[in-house]
Each structure stands twice: as C-alpha cells, then as structure tokens.
Design a protein around this nucleic acid. Structure first.
Length: 857
RNA sequence: GCCGCCGUGGCGGAAUGGUAGACGCCACAGACUUAAAAUCUGUUGAUCUCACGGUCGUGCCGGUUCGAGUCCGGCCGGCGGCACCA
C-alpha cells in the first residue's frame, strides 16, 4: 500500500488492543465456581466448529464463520448475556501423521507448532474468545475424558423396550454371561467387511471413504476385526429428534437420507427346506414375485446351489469379490447374475420361483435377499428382461400409464385377497396376513451402518482396553489418560496391523494382559468438545453438573421473537460451520450426546440447538480456492495490507452468510475505505500529528434527519444481527457514516452510538476512536444502545400514485394523510390524469403512507 | 435417476405481495493539486427522445392479485448431496 493513501493507522492500534484484551482478560467468561460468576445472568453459548490445525494455517473460510459468531457473541455480551464463545483445536488426525512420516518429526511437535500458528492468526483477528478455555483434543487431560466417554459406551447397552442406553451392570445383575453382554455393548468388536486403505494403513468409516478416495488414496473391502459403535440403535431417535432443532432443512434432509429409513415387511420364503427371509417395502406386490435374488456373498448360496449350477455360481461370486475393489458404478450399468438351480416357494400362492444371485442385491442392506417383482420395480424389470424371467402384473395404475415397470401406487390386481385395494391398504392387509400365518412381519429398515470406530494409525487416542484370555476389558478409570508411547517409526506396514503394535513394551502388561493397539478416529475428540469448553479445567469430571446445568439453561430472552433464541432441546445456542460435516461430525456428536443423555451425564437430548452453515468462499475467478488454481487468499496477507477490521468487515459484507460467494479484493478496499471514513470523522491528521476532528462536538443533535438516520441505524443493525444479516447491517452503517460525513457538525453522543453498533464488527477501530475521544470505558464493556422510537418518526412520507399498478407520480404527503387527502393530491396530478384520460375508475386501493392505486379501464 | 439449494445491472448483492437495483465495487465527470495519488461531490439497468418524458426489464411459459423478483403450476440452466438401499 502506498503511503500517500493515508489509511487509518490500523498497524499501530490493532495489536495494542489485542494485547490489552488479552492482558485484561476482557472476554473471560465466568462460570459456576468462579468468584465473579453471577448465576442470574442469562447465558448465551455461541460456538464455532474448531479447526484442524494444518500446516497451511487459516484460510479465508475460517474467519467467515468465526467473525459471524464473534459479532453475535460481542452483541449478546453488550446486551447483558454471559457469553460463552470458546476456541480450540481438533488436533489428532491423519495429516499430522502423514507429515511426520515424510519429515521424521514427531506429530506432537508439528501439531504444537501448527496450533501456535493458528492461535497467532486467530488472535490477529481480534476474536473475543475466552482464551482460558482453549482446548486441544490431543491434550492428555482432554484425551483422558475422551477415553472416559468411550468407557461409558463400552459399559452400556441399548435397552430396546425403553429405547435408551443403560449400564451393562444391570444385565450382569440379571445374570447375563460376559459373552452375552459383549454382544450388546454400544462399543463392541466385530469381524465384518470394512473399508481398508493400504496406503493410508488404516480402515475408514463409510462416511469417510469418499473424502480419502478423492484425495487419491485407494480403499478396498476387507473383513477385519474392528471396534464398532452401535449408532444404528439410535437411528429412529436421530431422525425424530431432528424436529426439535433449528437446523437448515438441507442438513436435516441429508441426515435423514443418510440414516435412510424404509418401512416394509420381512417375508419368509421356503427354499428347499431352508428359510430365506427377504425385506420389501412393497409387500402388496407379493403375488407378483416371480423370482428371488440373493446377494452373492449370502451364506445360503452354498447350501442351495445345485450341482449343475455350482461352477457358474462360484465363478460369479469370484468375479463379484474382485469387482468390489473397483468403482462399482461404472461396472454395473448392465445387470448381471446367475441362476442357483434352486427354487423358492412364494408363500402367498405356492408358486415355485427360481432363485438367482446378482450383485445388484447387497449383503449389507436388509437381509441380503429380495423377492423380485419385475412388473413394478425398475431394477427387477431390467433384470427380468435381460434373463427372460416372467413378469406378472399385480398393480393397476390409477391413470392410463403402462403397468410394465410401473412403480408408483395403484390398485392391486391378480393378487387374490388384495384385489381392488389401493397400495397403502394392500400393504397393511398383506402384512397382517403374513403375521397371522407366521410367514413374515412388519419391519423398519435403515441404511445407517454401525460406526467403524478403530483406526490402525498412531496419532489418535488409544483405546482404554486390554485383552486377557481372549476377552476385552476396560482399564480402570484411575489409569486414564492412557497415552500412546513415543515411537520412532510411524510408517504404515501395508498390513492391517496397527502401528502401536510396534510398541512391544507398552503392549505387554505384567499380569499377562495385552493392550488394544487400535486408536480412535479423529471424530472422537470433536464429538464432545463443546461440553468440555463449559468446564475445561475440571479434573474430576468431563464437565461438572453445575457447569452443565448453567450452560444448558434456556437463555432468558431480552429480545423476544429473536431468530437467535428458540425453545431448547440442544445445549449450544448457535453453532456455525460448514456443510461438509452434515453426516459425519454432526451425526456422531448427536449420537454421543444422546448416550451421555441416556446415562444421565447431560440433561439435554441434543448438543446443538441452532445450526447455521456458512457458505463457501470461492476464489476471485469464481472457482473453489485451491493451490493448483493459484486463487487462494491468505488471511495473513489481507490483515497486513488492510487490517483485521477490514478483513472481518469484508467477509461479513460479501453477501448472506449462508451463501456461496466469490472473493473480490476490490471489495476489501471498499470496506477499508468505509472504515477510513469513520476514522476521519473523528480524527484529523495535520503535519503528521493527529487530533480530534473539529466537527466532533459534544452538543445535542439539532439535525433531525441525521438523528433519524442514527436511530434507524441502531434499530436496523440490532435487528439484522439477530437475523444474521450482517451484510445489510453494514450497508446501514455505511449510510449512517455518509450522513455524518455530509453533516456540518458530528454530535459526540450520536457518533458514539454509531461506534457502539459498529464495535462487534470492527472492534479495534471503534475502541481506538472511542478512547481517543476521551472515554476510559471500552465500548465492549458498555451496553448496546437503545434507539429512540420518537426519533424515527417522519412527518412527511412519499406517496406513490399508481394507475393500474404502474407508477405514475409520487409526492410528499403528511404521514397521517387519510384516503381523502391522498385522493385529492393524486387527482391533482397532471401525470396521473394523463393516464386516466378516457377511462372509467373502477376501484381505488389505498395503503396509508405508501400506495394510492387507481384501477381504471 | 432421486433429494436439497440457487437463477436480479458490467460485478458482489438490496427489496414484510406495494417506488426493482439499497449498500459496495467497477466506469465516467467535476472539485482540490504544478501534476498524480488519496480525498470530497456528482452520474451510472437497457432503450427511444435535443429535452420533458415514454417503453422494456428480476432464467423461460402460464396462473392468482388492484399490484408478483416475492405466491401457485409447468419447464430450462447452475451448484451440492445420495445413488442398484429392495
């Protein structure tokens, strides 16, 4: 920046205010137990998704959400709330470890350096965090409670009748054996096909597979013994309890689709003495089931395949298992399958139907077997055509659509006792019939799978588990945290053997037991960090009852009907972050929270009451920012050239928070000019000396128009912050500033009111000006100004006259003008009369103070 | 294919069913300056007109309404998610 541009001296005062806030702990949040804690003060918990401290530092997407929450937090604070606005680091994870492999530096060292850099960057933006509550998921004290929560999961089961988690101790008391108990724990060991990535050296959760594949890593399906969390038990609650949350519909929809609830029935088919159960959402079409398909991996395949078909079946199974390594989508455009030689009996009509295997039926969903109704299912229809299998119509469309491949609802036909019934009734009747005969039952099916919770890498929380005599056992809570031993070599071996298995001394315990060597995924730490912020130093519990109680209490509403305050079933009042966590972190955290809720450790059923997704910031070229495109904007550069306030303000001025929008450096200049105008209103530079502008005078505001603009600004900025409409709030402050610029005199009181409403957006600049104007109290320690309704009143308003809805004239009129007065004025207008010529007036629509519309033809 | 979000000037974007384009950027002009930068003041949707003023205009087609960017129905285009889920 050239010196001749004379910007405001942000380089001098921004760091000064930052250190003052830090030294004076201005934004420290007192909590239960603190001497200065006031339990009567309403709380407001506003949370950011904490960052993964990568080596690259903050990108401009971080300050977008962080500034939004900072404005809300500062605003709530000025409105008398005890605001919890914390920050921390999601510091476990694969990239740190990958980096360690490359450089030979221990992940603890690189992670500490990265956190240091992130903290510096965050502080340079002037966020009002309570730094005393900062946490990192890698802190031993944090690991301890992550492991403790895991032990709660390990020590619980899901009681089906009560629909909630309970301690397994209750089962012990009832005389269950340990093997029986191990079968139902919420954290359990299973040997199932999982996604294994040889080059990452770890398994991945279903939810993570796409992300890593897109980064060029390979994954393959492989049966391995792994720790799982029984999230599926919460499927229905995870769907139902979304209703109580103030989340974007899109995110709710993503979670619902991911959980994937389907209602239907299980039907038992007899296949030559074996019972094969299928799941269907269309039991009403059972009469149209002309063949059956089971997944190639289905255990029954080997039992039912006839000798003649054995070779073909085995060959097909082999082909399918190798296929799973590759992208199935491309390979499965054409249906494939093989006849097993076996026949099933259709329970409803006794028909003998052939049993096929095909890879369009998957082992992982439902029962791994389907009844095929080719007349009314697209996939079955395609398959039947391909292999010339019979197609039997059982649904008559309501309209004149072709019944072939018709999948929507209709009327049952060729279906015995269902004939004539509409689909919904036919479904119910068929299920009743099946249940009556013991041939099937009503069934709800979910797509959600249990959560694969173990990883084979080093940089994660070790499981607090030991193995003895082939059984797993929890280690005593007194031994937490269980930290991973230092290792020289983190390199994955290419086998699913966890890295910790190299730490032979650590693994082996004196009593002969062996430590579990898997580690937890990065999600573990982020599942409960919002709880720890409430009581970050507690050494007795993950959160004290008192802290939990206070920070979950409903906020006392000082501003009714605010978008920021809704009835609470979640703890955090406002959570801001990206959509990328829709089915990952946001689902996992809800699940953990519900388990903690069931076990009585927290008192709300949900973690996050209101969720807002900030929109992605694109590069100046309208493309996603990426190193390879060279369109990445570094916040450090923006801060050094324009200052923190300009960066904050620009990110809020770009457009609606939730919208995707491109970066424009010219826009940063624009808001920087605005801030400079505010500065120059108060400060004059003369001969290198700066002094208070002569226009600033401590006198009553005599200009009623200016006064009205100021009060309109106070009103609008407050209302816009409540609605998270930061861009329009800033527009209004620009209008107000322009009004001051054009005024002869800038009254101190009104100017200070502008500084106050601007303070949450541009805290450094406003504090600096306020201090220079002689105030010894920081703006952030003052109350949010109230607007004076009397100052808003306009005596004259503009009345628009329309003829047939088209604007024809406008003029100023008294705000209280009635229809008669408006009519007189309107018909006096030559412009209006011109358009009325030769027409008959049919109707008059009068909206006082706004519109006078003459309908004529 | 299914689900969700979004289409407004040269650009980012404003508009409780009531003056479309606030505010900012860009551009142009004027003031200040020896000059430039910065700053301040204007103009700035398209089009016709010397002008007054008119006409058109919120992706497209239709509907409701005195009045539609906004509500309803049907398309088209872009972005994101899921994807043989029975």
């Amino acid at each position: 920046m050239s010196d001749s541009r004379k910007p405001f001296p942000f380089r001098d005062f921004e760091p000064q205010w930052q250190s003052r806030w830090e030294n004076e702990k201005t934004f420290r949040t007192p909590g239960p137990g603190d001497a200065d804690f006031d339990a009567k003060k309403p709380k407001y918990y506003v949370l950011d998704m904490f960052p993964y401290p990568s080596g690259a530092g903050l990108h401009v997407g971080h300050p977008e959400g962080y500034t939004a929450t900072d404005i809300i937090g500062r605003y709530k604070r000025m409105n008398g709330f005890n605001v919890l606005h914390p920050m921390g680091y999601d510091s476990f994870g694969l990239p740190a470890e990958q980096y360690a492999i490359k450089t030979g530096q221990h992940p603890a060292i690189t992670t500490a350096a990265n956190i240091e850099n992130f903290r510096r960057q965050l502080k340079s933006l002037g966020f009002a965090y309570d730094w005393d509550r900062e946490i990192a998921t890698t802190d031993p004290e944090y690991v301890r409670w992550t492991q403790w929560i895991f032990l709660q999961l390990y020590g619980s089961y899901f009681d089906e009748t009560e629909g909630k988690a309970k301690p397994v101790a209750e089962l012990e008391a009832k005389g269950w054996t340990r093997d029986q108990i191990d079968e139902v724990r919420l954290a359990f060991v299973a040997n199932t096909p999982v996604w294994w990535s040889p080059d990452l050296g770890t398994v991945l959760a279903n939810e993570e597979v796409e992300e890593w594949k897109s980064k060029g890593h390979t994954v393959e399906r492989r049966p391995l013994r792994q720790w799982m969390l029984r999230i599926t038990k919460y499927s229905q609650r995870l769907i139902d309890e979304l209703d109580s949350l103030d989340w974007p519909d899109g995110i709710k929809m993503l979670q619902k689709n991911w959980i994937g609830r389907s209602e239907g029935a299980e039907v038992n088919f007899d296949v030559q003495g074996h019972t094969v159960t299928v799941f269907t959402t269309r039991p009403d079409t059972l009469f149209g089931a002309t063949y059956m398909v089971i997944a190639p991996e289905h255990p029954f395949v080997s039992e039912i395949t006839t000798a003649e078909q054995q070779a073909a079946v085995t060959a097909y199974q082999k082909a399918c298992s190798s296929k799973s390594d590759m992208d199935r989508g491309d390979l499965n455009k054409d249906k494939s399958g093989v006849f097993t030689g076996a026949f099933a009996t259709n329970p409803v009509n006794g028909a003998q139907i052939p049993v096929w295997i095909a890879d369009y039926v998957m082992m992982g969903y439902g029962t791994g077997a389907i009844m095929a109704v080719p007349a009314h299912d697209e996939r079955d229809h395609e398959f039947a055509l391909r292999f010339s299998l019979p197609i039997q119509q059982v649904v008559q469309p309501f309209d004149d659509s072709d019944w072939q491949g018709y999948t929507a609802h209709g009327t049952a036909v060729n279906s015995g006792f269902l004939d004539g019934l509409p689909t919904a009734e036919a479904k119910a009747k068929m299920i009743d019939w099946l249940e009556g005969k013991g041939l099937g039952q009503r069934r709800i099916q979910y797509k959600l799978r249990d959560w694969l919770f173990s990883r084979q890498r080093y940089w994660g929380e070790p499981f607090p588990i030991v193995w003895k005599d082939g059984h797993h056992h929890a280690i005593p809570e007194s031994e937490l945290p269980l930290l991973a031993p230092p290792l020289e070599d983190y390199k994955p071996s290419g086998t699913p053997e966890p890295i910790l298995s190299k730490a032979t001394d650590w693994i082996q315990l004196p009593d002969g037991s062996i430590r579990e060597t898997n580690t937890m995924p990065q999600w573990a730490g982020s599942c409960w960090y919002y709880l720890r912020y409430c009581d970050p130093k507690n050494t007795d519990r993950f959160i004290s009852h008192e802290a939990e109680d206070y920070w979950t209490s409903s906020p006392h509403s000082s501003t009714p009907h605010s978008a920021l305050e809704t009835p609470h079933s979640g703890m955090v009042d406002l959570y801001v972050g990206g959509t990328e966590h829709a089915v990952l972190h946001l689902l996992y955290a809800r699940f953990w929270h519900k388990v903690l809720f069931d076990l009585g450790h927290v008192r709300t059923p949900e973690p996050f009451q209101k969720l807002v997704n900030q929109g992605l910031i694109l590069g100046e070229d309208g493309q996603k920012m990426s190193k390879s495109r060279g369109n990445v904007v570094n916040p450090d550069d923006v801060v050094s050239e324009y200052g923190a306030d300009a960066l904050r303000l620009y990110e809020m001025f770009m457009g609606p928070l939730e919208q995707v929008k491109p970066w424009q450096m010219k826009g940063v200049e624009g808001v920087s000019r605005f801030l400079a105008r505010v500065w120059r209103l108060a400060i004059e530079e003369q001969d290198g000396e700066s002094k208070i502008s002569a226009k600033i005078q401590d006198v009553p505001c005599s200009d009623s128009t200016l006064l009205r603009t100021v009060h309109e600004t106070i009103k609008k900025v407050g209302e816009d912050i409540e609605k998270l409409n930061f861009n329009t709030a800033i527009s209004q402050m620009m209008i107000c500033t322009n009004a001051f610029t054009q005024a002869e005199v800038v009254p101190l009181k009104e100017f200070t009111q502008l500084l106050k409403v601007l303070n949450p957006f541009a805290p450094h600049l406003t504090e600096e000006i306020n201090a220079r104007l002689g105030s010894s109290t920081m703006l952030s320690e003052t109350e949010w100004p109230a607007y004076d309704p009397a100052a808003l009143i306009r005596n004259e308003v503009e009345l628009v006259v329309q003829v047939n809805g088209k604007l024809r004239d406008r003029f100023m009129i008294s705000k209280d003008a009635d229809e008669e007065a408006a009519k007189a004025a309107a018909f006096a207008s030559p412009k209006v009369n011109e358009h009325l010529e030769g027409k008959t007036i049919r109707k008059i629509v009068f909206i006082p103070g706004k519109i006078f519309n003459i309908v004529a033809n």
